[in-house]
Design a protein around this nucleic acid. Sequence first.
DNA 1: ACATTACCATACGGCTGCGTATGGATGAAA
DNA 2: TTTCATCCATACGCAGCCGTATGGTAATGT
Lengths: 170, 170
Amino acid sequence: MLREHGIDHVKVEPLAQRLGVTKGSFYWHFKNRQDLLKSLPEFWARRQTDPVLAHVQAAPGGPIDKMRSILEFIAREDPDQYDNAMRAWAQFDPEVAAAVAAIDDRRMATARWLFEEAGLSAPDAAFRARLWYFYDVGEHVTRDTPDTVEERLERAAHRLKLLTSDLVSG
Amino acid sequence: MLREHGIDHVKVEPLAQRLGVTKGSFYWHFKNRQDLLKSLPEFWARRQTDPVLAHVQAAPGGPIDKMRSILEFIAREDPDQYDNAMRAWAQFDPEVAAAVAAIDDRRMATARWLFEEAGLSAPDAAFRARLWYFYDVGEHVTRDTPDTVEERLERAAHRLKLLTSDLVSG
DNA sequence: ACATTACCATACGGCTGCGTATGGATGAAA
DNA sequence: TTTCATCCATACGCAGCCGTATGGTAATGT
């Protein structure tokens, strides 16, 4: 419901109907609607960003290799499912905005770290990380992601080259 | 209402109350709620992107100068007001998504044109334009825009340098 | 066999919002 | 002055959704 129609359509009666139960059941598992909504951001974080950040830590090689690895990892994944819905929600709920901002920070900190490892100064790395990460966000939010894995990989290669060609290992 | 709470809170009765009138008045000016919603995308386009694209056409100098001009124009503006709400809406409404995509296309086509003018091949310019434009989108949607004009101008300069340093006029 | 726990259905009251029907009120035109 | 168009208020029926109260069923422990 969140992904397909937005947070305002996460309602208990339609939800119960979609699950083939009644809302009497819902109120057994959750205190109320708000209680359900509060559980969503954490669910999202564990499912959507923890795996990626774990992957980059485990990737072999130098920072550029790690970048390539993370890009290919993302390119092979199915296009985003939750990020857009969470961002849409975050626009109108400060608490959710904070949760999303925390995720953005974690992701961008990783990118920052990689660019510093690649030899950039702290401020330069910070900006380059923004450029790096915002490309992801932009592609998702404008739904400009190519449909085939091949095209996504090609774009990833292009992106890596453009963002690292002036660095030592690039 | 759209900006502050999202499209699902654009309801006729709360809206009428906020305006100090009754809904009897609303149904004089609009056929129904859907009729109001349909008018919003066009309102947004005229107000939010037409001025920027007109500005870049009128800017003097070469493509790099035009880029600098547009960045400074945006930096001096107040941070975005409608884009985020429209994108949040577009996530869940195909018609709105099409309208937003059309705006994205117009903006990105302008960027593409500038990079081609600066000497890039069509595919290179297309990618560079994405990198350019998605930075905007990312900054908006993550609410990472600095509060002061000075900081925004500084970031703009940094961004221009990074995205054009390998071009002839850069 | 009985009681307890876990899980779900039914039924209710209340609120909010949509759309329509109808009735003013005001100003311009004839 | 009468008529008509414009703009807004009032009042109604209807539907969707929330949260609670209450009852039912199946499994489990004693």
